[in-house]
Nucleic acid binder design. Structure first.
Lengths: 201, 201
DNA sequence: GCCGGACTAGAACGAACGCTCTATTTAGAG
DNA sequence: CTCTAAATAGAGCGTTCGTTCTAGTCCGGC
């Protein structure tokens, strides 16, 4: 009857709901309903309650987003074109979802900022994962390690911010603009490999 | 007794709470408590309920953030240095708040994405306001209008994303990196005024 | 005096929250 | 078949939610 296990259905449903409504806005009963499970099943698989469900869901979202990012990065050889491809991919997915499925962790991360909870930690880990993917791509093209670190951080930040902006405006344009500008920025390191920007703290 | 009116205290308290906990995570009673007002006062000034309070609070946050942005932009003449100054300002304010006072609208905007509510509209308007400030600064330095539009969108997106990244990692580094890279990007338009990036969809 | 509008104060309502608890059903081992 | 542990099912706990409602306080104009 069920192709996917009950536990998996719970995690997947929770991931989608967290992405769209945040942590506080998503109820355990709603997760159960959406996953076609019952409350008892949820607490059977996650006896530690809502936080544990959220942690598993965010890890799931992390992996899913990583896969999308990796595919886009590998679709182009030059890093500037690859980053541009990322932005286009995100724009397409966002439009197709009706502007609701953006970054899978931002909403949950922002709501739990002061709390030093497990949720915070997995969100931070997810951001590091994605940054690492971009970092590896940049390094593989011969960009200086310090430049690549700075760039990777900025690229992930920009994509994240552009996604939010695109969602709020219900338009792909912010992601397109981010893609164009990031491609130009990365390109400036490709064509002038030795010229670091200097001016650090 | 009260230097600020009860209504103002409610709006200010709501703005701070929305910024830190989002819309769903902030209760009307908590707003009243924090504003040193009673529930009756809140519903007296905002008979339309929680949404109306949130709308007023977000508008307040919009103006406050605009002021900060404008000051930073005017502190430097060249747009690249000005954008760099924005990032530094945000980093400082974020650290001083213990990493909790980030962008005043992101959390609330993300939670109410599917709802086409008034909250969505004021959030979108706030983003446009900030983008316009950056746009004017870029135009004033002779950058092409189309480039400036693209750049302004990207700069706001990047600052927003970097702020989230900085909050999650409890570190100023993402904002510093964004400042450096944005300065380089904007600088590339200042030194090569005619060279538009081309490559559109 | 004392009226009326602005404002303050908080009890109370139904609904939803996260979670606990007790039953019941399912599936494989003996 | 029996026995057992995993999994499912949902009633019900105490609490909090947004909101409504009534009552009380303040104060300028008669």
């Amino acid at each position: 009857m069920a192709q996917t296990s009950t536990r998996d259905r719970i995690v997947i449903a929770a991931a989608r709901l967290l992405q769209r409504q945040g942590y506080v806005g998503t109820g355990i009963k709603q997760i159960a309903r959406e996953a076609q499970a019952t409350l008892g099943s949820v607490y059977h698989f996650f006896p530690e309650g809502k936080q544990a469900v959220a942690v598993a869901a965010i890890k799931h979202g992390d992996q899913e987003f990583s896969a999308l990012l990796r595919a886009a990065l590998e679709s182009e050889e030059s890093p500037s074109a690859a980053v541009h491809a990322c932005a286009r991919q995100l724009a397409e997915a966002l439009r197709e979802s009706g502007w609701v499925d953006g970054c899978p962790i931002t909403a949950a991360a922002l709501e739990t900022l002061g709390t030093d909870s497990d949720i915070q930690r997995v969100c931070a880990a997810a951001l590091r994962d994605w940054e690492q993917l971009v970092y590896d791509k940049l390094l593989g093209s011969g960009i200086d390690t310090e430049d690549a670190r700075d760039l990777a951080t900025t690229i992930i930040s920009t994509l994240e911010g552009a996604e939010v902006t695109a969602q709020v405006n219900r338009s792909e344009e912010p992601l397109w603009a981010a893609g164009r500008q990031l491609a130009r920025l990365v390109g400036s390191y490709e064509t002038a490999p030795g010229a670091r920007s200097g001016q650090s703290g």
